[in-house]
Structures are given as C-alpha cells and as structure tokens.
Amino acid sequence: MSIPDPDTAVRLTRRRRAPDEARKEALVSARRLLLESGPDAITLKAVGDEIGVTHANLIHHFGSAAGLQSALMESMVRDLIQALDAAVAHLRSDAGAPRALVDQVFDAFDEGGAGRLAAWIVMSGDLELLEPVRGAVHDLVEAIYQKFQAEGEQARHRITAAVLFIALSAFGDAVIGPPLRDMLGRDQDSARRMVARLLPTFLY
C-alpha cells in the first residue's frame, strides 16, 4: 500500500472560489496562525496549504507574505475600531458602573487578538497602521465625558488619563495576562476588577 504524497493531499483539497472568498479565507487563516504561533508563522505556504489555494493565487491577492501580513493588520485594525465603537455605543445606552466600561475596552483588545495585533504593529515599527484607531479612541473619550457629566477641560484631561489607564491595562492583559496571572496566582478576572476599582479616581 503506497503512502499518499502530502503535496498531492494538499492539491486534492483545493477548490475553486470567488476572489473575495479566497481573500477572506486567507485572512481568517492568517489571523489564526498569528494568534496560535505569532507573526513568523504567517507565510504564503502555511496559509495556502491550510485553505487549499496555490502560492500563485495568494501572490495574486496579496503580492507577497508582507502584503498578506499588512492586509491582516488592516483587517484587525478595522475589527478593533468596531469593538471600540461598540464600547462607545454601550456606554451611551447603558447606565452601567465603571466595571461595564472596563469590560468593554478589555473585550476590544482581547477578542479577535487586537492586543497581539497592537504589539505586532509596534514591533514592526509601522505605527501608521494604528492611525485609523485615533477616531475611535477620541469617540470613547467623548462618550465617557458625556456619560459622567464632566465639565471643563480639567475633567476632559482626567478622562483621557482614564482611557490611557484602561487601554494600557487591557493591552497588557491581552498580551501577557494569562502567564503573568498564573505566576501570581490570580484568577482570569483579576485585572478587570483592579482597573474597575481604580477607575473612579480618574472620573470623579
């Protein structure tokens, strides 16, 4: 009995698909590789093998591995903006305590890998990729400003400090939270509780 050639098995999994569908599948695969193994795992071969398309097909869509990585960054930035926008909408429609706000921002950085994305962008040095997030961050500041009925520029200064505090904490928790909590014997919710307890010192 002959042993199947792995390359043959890969070719047999290939199927025709619309260009948009192939591009979306490639980005989903690339995101999974990023979250599981880091940016070095995002290669045209790895993505092509996983979704069953040729190297030439991915070159056609993205130009190069760097092009694929750039497209993934842009896609994840859009997701982060949507998550922050959702936090703003929740904040404006819900009368929740500071913990609700903390959960929204932590979720924005944790779900979908936005925290790791931010670390990847910073390490790559291409900070311009984060520029589209600016508007979402400003909207978050404005929503907190309106919700807590703050008045004057001094209050706005406190709120920007609060957003910085929450975002930095959420980013750190998303990137290194699990192993650090394990080292310290803290539960999964501990960082969120800590930030929620300290947040009123900024807002009131």
Results as ranks from 00 to 15, higher is better:
residue 130 L to A: 04
residue 177 G to S: 05
residue 67 G to E: 14
residue 130 L to I: 02
residue 5 D to C: 15
residue 149 Q to P: 08
residue 192 R to V: 02
residue 195 V to F: 05
residue 188 Q to F: 02
residue 185 G to N: 07
residue 3 I to A: 06
residue 19 P to N: 10
residue 110 D to V: 03
residue 30 A to N: 06
residue 188 Q to K: 11
residue 197 R to Y: 08
residue 13 T to L: 11
residue 51 I to E: 11
residue 118 A to Q: 13
residue 173 D to V: 05
residue 22 A to N: 11
residue 80 L to A: 09
residue 62 F to N: 05
residue 181 R to N: 03
residue 191 A to S: 14
residue 8 T to Q: 15
residue 193 R to H: 02
residue 54 T to P: 14
residue 132 P to K: 05
residue 181 R to Q: 11
residue 99 R to S: 08
residue 72 L to P: 04
residue 65 A to Y: 08
residue 90 H to P: 00
residue 131 E to R: 15
residue 67 G to F: 03
residue 201 T to H: 09
residue 99 R to P: 00
residue 198 L to P: 00
residue 14 R to H: 02
residue 116 R to M: 08
residue 109 F to K: 00
residue 24 K to R: 14
residue 37 S to G: 06
residue 29 S to A: 12
residue 63 G to D: 09
residue 28 V to S: 14
residue 182 D to L: 11
residue 105 V to T: 07
residue 131 E to I: 09
residue 72 L to D: 01
residue 152 G to P: 00
residue 190 S to D: 07
residue 26 A to R: 06
residue 8 T to G: 13
residue 52 G to Y: 07
residue 169 S to G: 13
residue 149 Q to V: 04
residue 166 I to F: 09
residue 19 P to S: 15
residue 174 A to P: 09
residue 45 K to F: 07
residue 145 Y to H: 14
residue 110 D to T: 09
residue 89 A to E: 08
residue 99 R to V: 05
residue 86 A to V: 03
residue 87 A to S: 05
residue 130 L to D: 01
residue 188 Q to Y: 04
residue 22 A to R: 12
residue 21 E to M: 13
residue 72 L to G: 05
residue 39 P to S: 15
residue 73 M to I: 11
residue 85 D to K: 08
residue 186 R to Q: 15
residue 21 E to H: 02
residue 182 D to E: 13
residue 191 A to R: 14
residue 69 Q to K: 15
residue 196 A to Y: 00
residue 112 G to Y: 07
residue 127 L to N: 12
residue 11 R to A: 01
residue 99 R to W: 01
residue 92 R to K: 08
residue 183 M to P: 00
residue 175 V to L: 10
residue 105 V to H: 08
residue 24 K to V: 02
residue 80 L to W: 05
residue 13 T to S: 09
